[in-house]
Every structure is written in C-alpha cells, then in structure tokens.
Simulated assay, not measured.
Amino acid sequence: MTQVSRIEEIKTMLFQLPIEELITLIAEIEEKLETVRIMQLAETGFQEWNDPEEDIYND
C-alpha cells in the first residue's frame, strides 16, 4: 500500500465522521502540531549546550 493510497483511505474514513467528531479531531491534531512546533523551536535555543565533549558521560 502506497502512502498516497493510505492518505486517501484515511480521508475517506474521516469524511464519514459526524461534524462534531471532526471538530474534536481537528482540535486534537492542532494541539499536537503546536506542541511539536514549540519543541522544534525550543531545540534551537539549546544548541549551545550540544557539546560533543560531554558525550563521555553517556557511556
């Protein structure tokens, strides 16, 4: 199954949901995306802490 066919299958399932469930689902997806975006943005603030010399503590 290709990614395109999976997306079409998901869209078909979504369009069968009642509008109230779609609204709830959209809100949950937006919340997840916002969290991911914030985490990605936060990563840029910690680049100065990314010191390869400190990897010795991972052993």
Rank of each mutant, 00 (worst) to 15 (best):
I10F: 08
N50P: 01
E20D: 14
T44E: 11
V36F: 00
I56T: 09
L25R: 08
Q16N: 14
M13R: 15
L33Q: 08
Y57Q: 11
E20C: 06
E31M: 14
R37C: 06
I26Y: 12
E8T: 08
I38S: 03
L22T: 05
I26Q: 07
D59Y: 13
E34D: 15
Q3H: 10
I7M: 15
M13F: 12
T44W: 05
E31I: 11
E28P: 03
E30H: 06
Q3F: 10
E48I: 01
Y57D: 08
E9L: 10
S5E: 15
M13N: 13
A42V: 05
T24L: 04
E21N: 15
T24S: 10
G45F: 00
A27E: 14
D51R: 00
E28F: 02
E20K: 10
E48C: 04
V4L: 15
Q40P: 00
D51P: 00
D59V: 15
L41P: 00
M1N: 10
Q47K: 09
F15W: 12
V4M: 14
E20G: 06
R37V: 13
Q40C: 02
I29V: 13
T12D: 11
T12K: 11
D59H: 11
E21D: 14
K32Y: 04
E34L: 06
L25H: 09
Q16F: 06
W49T: 06
E48G: 06
T35K: 07
P18D: 15
E31R: 08
T2S: 12
A27M: 09
E48W: 00
V4D: 15
I7T: 12
M39F: 04
E8G: 05
V4E: 12
M39S: 11
N50G: 02
E21L: 05
I10P: 03
Q40L: 05
I23E: 12
I7D: 15
K11T: 04
G45M: 00
I7S: 10
R37E: 09
E30M: 10
T35L: 08
D55V: 04
W49Q: 12
E54A: 07
L25Y: 10
F15S: 09
S5T: 09
T35Q: 10
T12P: 02
V36G: 00
A27N: 09
G45A: 03
I29E: 04
W49M: 10
L41C: 02
T12W: 07
E21H: 12
I23A: 09
L14P: 06
T2Q: 08
E54W: 02
E53F: 01
I56D: 13
P52M: 02
E43T: 02
D51K: 00
N58E: 08
A27K: 13
L14S: 07
N58M: 09
L22Q: 15
Q47P: 00
D59P: 03
Q47C: 01
E28H: 09
E43G: 03
E53R: 01
Q47S: 07
E30F: 02
K32T: 11
I26A: 13
L22I: 08
Y57V: 14
T2N: 13
K11N: 06
T35E: 05
E54I: 09
D55W: 03
M1F: 11
R6E: 10
I19G: 05
M13W: 12
G45D: 00
L17T: 02
